[in-house]
Design a protein around this nucleic acid. Structure first.
Lengths: 251, 251
DNA sequence: TAAAAAACCTGTTATATAGCAGGTTTTTAA
DNA sequence: TTAAAAACCTGCTATATAACAGGTTTTTTA
């Protein structure tokens, strides 16, 4: 078994080359990028591996042993877990700068989620051993990661609340607002192209219900649709409808 | 405005006295206790405040500004958030050694939950400023706290899954197993005394449903009841019934 | 220990939502 | 460009669960 410190120094000759990859990276929200002034973190990024993923490709398998952490360099990803009777549940969507696979951190031996590219992606990969090493050496990064987890926890609990207290229509609206907030619109339609089924898997309902609610919202001129594309027409009215549920998390 | 470092040195004369409180503490699972060998953490515990709470008393108010973190020294606590139409939702139950109020950490300005003592409690309190100070100085503690958050996140997402994919009966069983796992039984009944309403608020259903499921489980000789007291008769059969939902989290 | 309050229970009804079936449109790929 | 596949849509039905109402038992408190 090769020790982790060996690995960390193994590719010393690549420092400039690989560092420049992170240095040149424009994902300001990336935790690694944010802590790059630390020499420990900078050295850590030598161990970074870059992975390309085609649309539809799965790069984390639920139940597989946890080997490392992924950061989205470019592209969009859906994070999901397989539920009862194979029904898949979409946990969240991720874009540039976001961490994936952190749920398996620490105690968990196996990934509790799967991750699938919803468009062609470039991913940064770090092994668990390297991460644990750098976290022990760089408290600022650990602190940032802790805050990230705290934030994720808040979002997850907001979802618990939404599932247990919102109607299907409200959850669909909540989902639309979430996707729009996160990915924005381009020429009048949400930039993230999802099937009705995927909306359902995120909102915790069925395809048919999504279709029904979309139809209703369209009739009420709150959204427009064109095939799979969804456009938000009246954001504030949609927000208003779920405002009683303490909608305040920018998740 | 008094600087935080001033506060940390203010009660230097109490070191032995106050430290001994944490030193003598028997909550081995407490993160503070676990990191007490660090002099930074030991010094930090000087700032600990002890609070007593009567049964039913609320010590964190949803929406109030975040001032600090609580640790349960003794007693049992329910953590809840107020939902739509005043319907309360119980997020979790806490016992000795557990952290409360961490959800407000970092970005959040206001507590997203309330905390109420379900029996007489003794709490340890630390202000946010002191905690942030000690976290910056003691990476091991930060790391532990990070893992704690990661774990909480897993539990929360397990709950998302349970809410969206389990039937009411399954959720009730899940709740019974959770409470039993966490608080155990005494003379044949679960040590935590909850009303049917509280079970409902945790399981995400209504009082009536809880009562119906309890009746059914009683008829099937899986549990016994005596007033509010619930006894688990056949743990393994109950587990079996929800096993398809990947029941593996000791939350 | 008696009165009041809280908690518990059961039957009935209402309703939101899931599931099914069969059709149409859109997208993908040969 | 056309065929096949995937995605979308609508009406109908089934069903799990919530809500209501009115009663009983248990617990609390004065």
């Amino acid at each position: 078994m090769i020790s982790t410190s060996d690995k960390l120094s193994a590719s010393a000759q690549n420092i400039n080359l690989v560092n420049s990859a992170c240095m040149a990276c424009s994902n300001e929200r990336c935790l690694i990028k944010k802590n790059l002034e630390s020499s420990v973190v900078a050295k850590f990024t030598e161990q970074r591996k870059q992975i390309r993923c085609k649309k539809g490709q799965q790069f984390i398998m639920e139940g597989a042993p946890v080997t490392g952490l992924f950061f989205v360099l470019q592209g969009k990803v859906k994070v999901l877990r397989t539920g009862l009777h194979g029904k898949e549940q979409i946990v969240r969507f991720a874009k540039e700068g976001e961490i994936i696979g952190h749920r398996g951190f620490g105690t968990a031996e196996y990934y509790s989620i799967s991750a699938v590219a919803i468009e062609d992606c470039t991913l940064c990969y770090f092994s668990i051993e390297n991460i644990q090493l750098v976290l022990q050496k760089e408290p600022a990064l650990t602190y940032d990661l802790m805050l990230f987890y705290a934030n994720e926890l808040n979002k997850s609990e907001a979802k618990v609340k939404s599932l247990s207290q919102m109607t299907v229509r409200e959850r669909v609206i909540d989902t639309l607002l979430y996707v729009n907030r996160k990915f924005g619109q381009q020429s009048g339609y949400i930039s993230l192209l999802l099937s009705r089924r995927e909306y359902a898997d995120y909102a915790g309902t069925t395809e048919e219900q999504i279709i029904r609610v979309f139809s209703a919202l369209k009739k009420e001129k709150l959204i427009t649709t064109k095939g799979k594309r969804i456009g938000i027409v009246d954001n504030s009215l949609l927000k208003q409808e779920i405002s009683e549920h303490n909608f305040y998390l920018d998740s």
